[in-house]
């Protein structure tokens, strides 16, 4: 089975994010990391590929930087990567991103596309659905369990108060939730092998996407009125009484 996994490199969430004061775009350092959310898609892809003697191709759009995040996913075991890094795509919205990714996926061929439900940095949470519409296939979204047999895929789809079992013929797009599987850590062997795995590079025009206007513009950025920290006390055995006092003050007890 030909499996494509969408993976995004993001600024390390351990450091606070900031916006460029002029362009209002997220500042992306050269060193980006693999979005933790996408490790789940990679792991599901690797497991399904092992089961179906398939291949896992990564596809990613954004500043390539030193490719650390993509190498991390290759080190987990993906076979190859497609990278679209193009200055014209700076400031793309979700729809342009989806057009680029769908064009690259179309070009590489696919039976199954995997993505995260929402990224950590932009979290618009619509890119997988947009890719599915562009590829004219079903989107089985919010999967908390995934299985395949010859030509069908079945997921447990998260709902507000439980889950639905959803099944579809391939080809299809699936978005996976965190916790769907336990992502593996790259082994030393994997890290070494990743260095020589093929990476194809494309631009927007290579993929035939010419309209990259996001159709939206950030016009102002302001500080939110921060909620102020209140009283903080150290528990020396009686702190629960302070909570009781507070609850009485609020007239709930």
């Amino acid at each position: 089975m030909n499996i494509v996994v969408c993976v995004k490199q993001i600024p390390d969430p351990a450091n606070p994010y900031s916006l460029d004061p002029e362009t209002h775009l997220l500042i992306r350092p050269d060193e980006q990391v693999l979005d933790d959310t996408d490790r789940y898609g990679v792991e599901v892809g690797l497991q399904l590929a092992a089961q179906t003697e398939g291949t896992v191709t990564l596809v990613s759009m954004g500043p390539a930087g030193n490719m650390q995040g993509i190498r991390q996913a290759l080190a987990m075991g993906a076979d190859k990567a497609i990278m679209i890094d193009d200055a014209d795509l700076k400031g793309s919205g979700a729809l342009t991103t989806a057009k680029i990714l769908a064009a690259a996926i179309q070009r590489s061929g696919f039976d199954l596309v995997l993505a995260g439900t929402e990224s950590t940095d932009g979290y618009t949470g619509v890119v997988p659905q947009q890719i599915a519409e562009l590829l004219d296939v079903p989107a089985l979204t919010f999967a908390k369990q995934v299985s395949v047999d010859a030509s069908t895929v079945t997921i447990n789809q998260q709902t507000a108060n439980g889950y639905n079992v959803v099944t579809s013929e391939l080809p299809a797009v699936i978005s996976v939730t965190a916790g769907v599987v336990e992502p593996r850590y790259p082994t030393f062997k994997g890290i070494m092998a990743a260095k020589s795995k093929p990476v194809e590079n494309y631009t927007a025009s290579d993929l035939g996407v010419s309209d990259t206007d996001p159709g939206q513009a950030i016009i102002s950025v302001d500080e939110a009125t921060e909620r102020k920290a209140g009283t903080k006390i150290e528990d020396e055995g009686e702190a629960h009484l302070r909570i009781i006092e507070k609850l009485q003050e609020l007239k709930v007890i």
């Binding site: 979700a94 729809l95 979290y123 618009t124 949470g125 619509v126 890119v127 599915a132 939206q216």
Partner: peptide, 17 residues
């Protein structure tokens, strides 16, 4: 989210989340 995402492609309009 599923409907809005697909609709944005159908109409070729951005979606703000």
């Amino acid at each position: 989210r599923d409907v809005a995402g697909r609709l944005s492609v159908r109409l070729d309009r951005p979606v703000v989340s």
